[in-house]
Structure formats: C-alpha cells, structure tokens
Simulated assay, not measured.
Amino acid sequence: MHSEHTFKQYDAELEALRGKVLEMGGLVEQQIIQALEALVKLDPNLAKEVMNNDHRVNALEVQIDEDCSHIIARRQPTAGDLRMVMMIVKTITDLERIGDEATKIARTAQKIFDEDRLYKPRFNEIKAMVTLVREMLSTALDGFARLDDSKTVAVARQDEQVDEQFRAAMRQLITFMLEDPRTISMSLEVLFVAKAIERIGDHAKNIAEYVVYMVKGKDVRHTSVQDMERETSQS
C-alpha cells in the first residue's frame, strides 16, 4: 500500500511538472501575440506588458528547473521518466529564449513609438512568418501535452518555410536599402524583428524534437527532415 501511494505521488509530481511547462508555454505564446500587436499598432503599454511578463517567464524557468532537480534527487527516475525530466529542462530553456525574442520585438516597438517618427517601418514582409511560428509553437506544445510526436515532421517542414521566408525578406530589404539609402534604418529594424521571429521558429522546432525523444527515446536533432520522418513513423 505504501509503495502504491508513493507511485501515485510520484506520478502526480510529474504531471504537476508538465502542467507548469504548459503554463510557461501559454505565457510565452501570449508574449508573441502581444509583442507583434504592439509592433503593428505601436502600442507602448502592450510592449511594456510583454517586457513585464518576461520576468514571469524567467521565474517559471527557475522554478521548474528546481523542481526537476528535486525529482532527480529524490525519485531517481529511470527510462521514460528520466527522459521526460531531461527534456523538460531543455524545453523550458527554449521557451525562455522564445520569451526573450518576443521581448526584443516589444522593445523595438517601444523604441519606434518613443522616437515619434514621421515615417514608420511597415512589417508586411514578416506577416506570413509570424503566422507560421505561432502555429509551430502551438503544435509543439500540443505534442508535449499529449506526448504525441506525430506532428514533429510537420513542424520541421514549417521551420524550413520560415527560413526561406526570412531569406526572401532579407533580400527584399537589402534591395530597398540599395535603392533608397533613406530606408536603411527602417529596413534594419524590420530585419531585426524578422530574425527574432526566425529564431522563435528554431526554438519551436527544438521543442517538437524533444517530444520525439520523450516518446520514443530517439534523438532527431541535427537530422534531415527525411530522417526525422523515418524515425517518427516507426512504432
């Protein structure tokens, strides 16, 4: 009976840990949405909210990290449980970095607002990128919640699309700067935001890859999409 109680308590601790990761993921998703809205509307209050929420994201990372350390020390997890705890540590690192990228975008919005320019940058070049990275992160977190790696390849393919859209935006912005040097400052700001969005996509892909390791014990990092497809299709 004591052993059964201990196992139930252990399972509850792991579930609580996963719940905190999803809480952190939800907060980071909200940061992305608000940061981009702050940028489009040049809303300083929304930009400040994103920056303030970054402290909450950081605090959650520290708390979850400590919880993982305590579980390893007290429970000495093995096999699938150990993989889960290890990947949770990696997942929260990527989530924290996504929060950092969202904060960079919010700071750009704040800077443009504070300078009260006559001409403000437009961000049409990155709208498709934004849609993709939000979908990637949502899919990766859903896979984490369900312990389902079936969408990992789809996330990896979307990351390739984001990379290509970033390169296309960069080429377009370079053309603008060459044709009219007056656009250099604004174009660099758009490029800075585009790079932050591209990095968010990279982190979302990482999270999706960690799910594969949690579920199947297979490390698909630094592999091609084709190799990843073969690994995830195997039972």
Score class of each variant (00 low, 15 high):
Glu189Lys: 15
Leu178Trp: 12
Met129Pro: 00
Ser233Arg: 14
Glu101Val: 02
Ala154Pro: 07
Ile98Gly: 01
Val220His: 02
Leu22Gly: 07
Pro181Gly: 02
His203Asp: 08
Asp149Gly: 02
Lys111Met: 13
Arg97Tyr: 02
Glu189Asp: 14
Glu229Cys: 06
Gly217His: 03
Phe176Ser: 06
Met87Val: 08
Ile112Glu: 01
Val162Ile: 11
Asp163Lys: 04
Asp142Lys: 15
Lys104His: 15
Lys216Ser: 00
Lys104Ile: 09
Glu209His: 03
Asp11Ser: 15
Leu17Ala: 04
Leu188Ile: 05
Phe192Ile: 04
Arg134Lys: 15
Leu14Arg: 04
Glu209Ser: 03
Leu39Gln: 01
Ser233Tyr: 08
Thr131His: 14
Leu39Val: 05
Arg157Leu: 09
Arg134Pro: 03
Gly143Thr: 01
Cys68Gln: 13
Glu125His: 04
Ser187Trp: 12
Arg134Glu: 06
Asp65Arg: 08
Asp202Val: 03
Asp148Ala: 00
Gln34Cys: 15
Asp11Ile: 06
Pro181Lys: 10
Val220Asp: 01
Val40Lys: 13
Glu135Cys: 00
Glu23His: 14
Lys8Asn: 11
Val130Glu: 10
Ala145Asp: 09
Glu115Met: 10
Ala35Tyr: 00
Gly25Gln: 12
Pro77Ala: 08
Gly217Cys: 05
Val215Ser: 01
Thr78Phe: 10
Asp227Cys: 09
Gln165Ser: 00
Tyr10Asp: 08
Thr78Met: 14
Met177Gln: 02
Glu189Leu: 12
Lys195Asp: 05
Val155Met: 04
Asp148Pro: 01
Gly217Met: 02
Pro77Gly: 07
Ile126Cys: 02
Val211Leu: 07
Arg56Gly: 11
Ser224His: 10
Glu229Ile: 06
Glu101His: 11
His222Arg: 11
Val215Leu: 04
Ile33Leu: 15
Val211Gly: 00
Leu42Tyr: 02
Leu46Val: 06
Asn206Gln: 04
Phe113Asn: 05
Leu118Cys: 10
Met84Trp: 07
Thr93Pro: 01
Gly19Ile: 04
Ile92Lys: 07
Thr152Gln: 02
Ile126Phe: 01
Asp81Asn: 13
Ala194Ile: 03
Ser224Pro: 04
Arg75Gly: 05
Ala140Ile: 08
Gln76Ala: 11
Lys41Tyr: 03
Val89Gly: 08
Glu164Lys: 13
Asp227Thr: 13
Val133Gly: 00
Glu66Pro: 09
Leu14Thr: 05
Ser69Trp: 14
Arg157Gly: 02
Asp65Trp: 12
Leu95Ser: 09
Val153Cys: 03
Ser187Gln: 12
Ala140Ser: 15
Ala208Gln: 06
Arg157Trp: 04
Leu27Lys: 09
Lys48His: 11
Arg171Tyr: 15
Gln9His: 12
Lys104Thr: 09
